[in-house]
């Protein structure tokens, strides 16, 4: 049974990389079910994250957000800060797709704080870029400017010409 779980996970990932997102969801749901049977929280967290990603490409953003939230709860429970940051970043982008910019800002700020704690310059730059855009969408131009300037500083530091 544990091997079946791992195989469903691998199958889901392969279907996802082939852009067969409905099949990917079916496989990752099976992976999640088996992870729950064994109380395998790390596998459960991976399945929620993989499901969230697949729902994004199916255009089901609300469902994606629900799955990313479960992944975030588990990342916190497992005390994995890098994975917690990734879940916050995913939620920030998902709420931007849903045009809920206040929630997007909440999650991008959470991502920013963790990226700073971990010394992750690429993550910090992405967070500032995202925050600048969300504040622009809300008409908070002073805040947008602040984050755009910080994004520029970090891009110069990391040599990111793009």
């Amino acid at each position: 049974r544990p091997a079946q779980g791992r195989t469903y996970g691998n199958l889901g990932n392969t279907q996802y990389l082939l852009s067969n997102f409905c099949n990917a969801v079916d496989s990752h749901k099976m992976r999640l079910l088996i992870a729950k049977e064994f109380g395998d929280l790390a596998a459960e967290r991976r399945a929620y994250c993989n499901l969230g990603n697949a729902y994004i490409f199916l255009g089901e953003f609300e469902k994606a957000a629900e799955h990313y939230k479960r992944a975030l709860q588990l990342a916190r429970h497992l005390r994995d800060r890098a994975v917690e940051a990734q879940a916050c970043y995913s939620l920030g982008n998902t709420y931007t797709l849903l045009q809920d910019y206040e929630r997007a800002i909440d999650y991008h700020l959470k991502h920013l704080i963790i990226a700073q704690d971990l010394g992750d310059k690429v993550g910090e730059g992405r967070a500032c870029w995202s925050l600048g855009n969300a504040h622009t969408a809300l008409g908070n131009h002073d805040q947008a400017m602040h984050f755009a300037e910080r994004h520029l500083e970090i891009s110069n530091e990391t040599g990111d010409r793009c």
Partner: peptide, 26 residues
Amino acid sequence: PTRMHVIQVDSVQRWMEDLRHMTEVE
């Protein structure tokens, strides 16, 4: 889409480009 919408999407688009190749490996 408005200009603002286009601006708003560019950081999300970049995320989605990365996401397409990102899987949580067993």
